[in-house]
Design a binder for these strands. Structure first.
Length: 573
DNA sequence: CGAATCGGCGCG
DNA sequence: AAAGCGCGCCGATTCG
């Protein structure tokens, strides 16, 4: 049973729907204020199997309201996220949904539009411009969830593989629930510990506009070493000029390049950069803006990355919490943090995805890189690691490039898979993950440049530019299949765990039971009552096994985790 | 003047 | 030691 929720002049319209998306009973209108109680009633009275799946346009607009009212839901269908997948997927390319003109369901959520108006970059901005909005005609008024849901059910049923795409939609929607719940619960954050940490490294909090004492001290050492009393090292142009004037051969101010120099300025300059970064990215200003009532509540953007990974938006930078400040993340009294990390996830995904028996054999080991060495493909563990990364990212030169032939010889099917994904991208074709998320097509500029290289009047320069661009898109599609499938594994892992944690909690409210508080591509953090951590660890382990089974069925590849039960996130590894 | 871009760096 | 994927955010700089 599905129940669609939609705004209505008198409140909220509830429409019961069957598996095909057809009406399955009388639609009713409820006052807005009565909605959470009605949702709760349906959640609690039904047996688990009969619990409704709530169908709504955006989880971000409905679920936070329910959570604030103390209502958790078991399952939902996030129509906008599902639409984005179905619109692009090769598996549903010939369905009515995919062939329809762009409409309101292709537009960003209302929050995203507001966010963009505030001057933030569009999520799809980047190295490559994507397919432009054809027409970009926004539907008049809010789109109808009932009609959209029916189209989506049709598309799934008619797809080349309904089970896979259906699983992907379920996982994506479950992810949306997790994201809302994690934001609701928040990551426990001890502001006084963060402040203490900053004070130790930078000195006491300065007045606005002033540098902290320790930063000033190290800045003076930099200026002395370069005999440049006015130098502002935050200006790359100024810094590079000053370094050159001191006789140093350098054209950038990256730490990695500076590290290679031999000069008295190197040590204080690297120290300055490190401290200045801490101050600007996660200093007191960050603390004021992002931590309230002992919680950090980042805005997760489910499916915010083309590969299906999550992104984050707004202040905070949730997906880049430096290790430096993780000491401020501490479990509440009586609670523990259970931190779990999937080891070497992407190479294992490649092994399972390609069905390469030899690589899958290595993928059974706790240390996959060591197993690759044991097979004799490469000589050292470092080589195994760098070669695998090169295979998944498309390295052509350097050590990684040199190791590729040996790797391809030992694991022809696995390397063949990423190579053919790269070739497809170079031709401008689409590639698809295990569960059916397809890569975007290159934009019009890309195609024009390719076409120009084959034209009558093309020059060598045109051809070489086109080749470079084609290879670049090929590296993207090469990585897409692995990164995207890894993101699917992580979604399945997290969605399965979410259910298990709820079971463990019994009738306890979300934040009194073990609950997810953080997720970062292949790592998650559960905030759990101290007495339940053994059960939580077991649930995390079995969710990982289940994720592997959901994606790949019977595969020899294993997905080992490293799990730590700690008070402070800083102690996790 | 604010908006867009650049160089740099944090995360996976 | 390094050059190849995906992100978001900062301060400085340049653009319009």
């Amino acid at each position: 049973m599905f129940i669609a929720l939609a705004s209505h002049p008198d409140g909220v319209l509830l429409s019961p729907l069957d598996d095909a998306g057809e009406p399955a009973g009388e639609a009713t209108v409820l006052a807005r204020a009565a909605m959470p109680a009605e949702v709760a009633r349906r959640e609690f009275t039904a047996a688990a199997a009969d619990r409704p799946r709530w169908v709504w346009d955006d989880t971000t607009t409905w679920y936070p309201l329910l959570l604030s009212a103390g209502v958790r839901v078991e399952r939902c269908v996030d129509l906008r996220l599902s639409h984005a997948i179905l619109r692009n997927s090769e598996l549903t390319a010939r369905t009515a949904l995919a062939r329809a003109a762009r409409n309101g369901w292709d537009e960003p959520t209302p929050e995203d539009r507001a966010h963009r108006r505030e001057g933030h970059r569009a999520a799809s901005d980047g190295l490559f411009e994507l397919e432009p909005d054809a027409g970009s005609a926004s539907a008049v008024g809010p789109p109808d969830p009932v009609a959209e849901f029916r189209l989506q059910r049709e598309a799934v049923a008619a797809s080349a593989d309904p089970a896979r795409i259906g699983l992907l939609l379920a996982a994506e929607s479950a992810g949306a629930l997790v994201a809302a719940e994690m934001q609701f619960a928040g990551l426990p954050w001890r502001a006084e510990l963060h402040d203490q940490l900053l004070t130790e490294l930078l000195g006491p909090r300065p007045k606005p506009g002033e540098r902290p004492a320790k930063l000033t001290a190290v800045l003076e050492r930099v200026r002395d070493a370069l005999d440049a009393p006015e130098l502002n090292p935050d200006s790359p142009v100024e810094l590079v000029k000053t370094l050159q004037r001191a006789g140093l051969m350098i054209t950038s101010t990256r730490s990695w390049d500076i590290k290679k120099l031999r000069h008295p300025v190197v040590e204080p300059l690297l120290e300055y950069k490190k401290l200045a970064r801490l101050l600007s990215a996660n200093g007191w200003h960050w603390l004021d803006a992002n931590v309230r009532d002992g919680r950090f509540r980042p805005d997760y953007v489910v499916g915010g990355v083309v590969t299906g990974r999550w992104a984050s938006k707004g202040g905070g930078g949730a997906l880049q919490l430096p290790k430096q400040v993780r000491g401020a993340v501490v479990a509440d009294p009586g609670f523990k943090l259970v931190v779990a990390d999937a080891s070497q996830l992407e190479p294992r995904i490649l092994a399972a995805l390609s069905g390469d028996a030899a690589m899958a054999e290595a993928g059974r080991a706790k240390d996959m890189y060591a197993a690759i060495v044991a097979r004799g493909a490469v000589k050292t563990r470092d080589h195994a690691k760098v070669a695998m990364l090169g295979a998944m990212y498309g390295a052509t030169t350097g050590e990684s490039g040199r190791l590729m032939p040996a790797l391809a010889k030992a694991y022809p099917r696995a390397i063949g898979l990423v190579e053919s994904a790269a070739r497809a991208g170079e031709r401008g074709e689409v590639v698809t993950t295990r569960l059916g998320r397809s890569s975007p097509r290159p934009g019009a500029n890309w195609r024009e440049l390719q076409a120009a290289a084959y034209g009558e009047s093309s020059t060598d320069a045109d051809a070489s530019k086109a080749r470079g661009q084609a290879r670049s898109w090929g590296r993207f599609t090469r990585n897409f299949v692995v990164q995207g499938t890894a993101a699917e594994w992580a979604l399945c892992w997290m969605a399965t765990l979410r259910g298990a944690l709820h079971e463990l909690g019994g009738s306890a409210w979300l934040t009194d039971a073990p609950h997810l508080v953080f997720f970062l591509h292949d790592e998650l953090v559960v905030h759990s009552p101290a007495a339940m951590t053994d059960a939580v660890v077991a649930a995390i382990e079995s969710a990982a096994v289940e994720a592997g089974r959901l994606l790949f069925g019977a595969t020899p590849v294993e997905f080992p985790l490293s799990i730590a039960v700690v008070d402070s996130y800083a102690d996790a590894k």
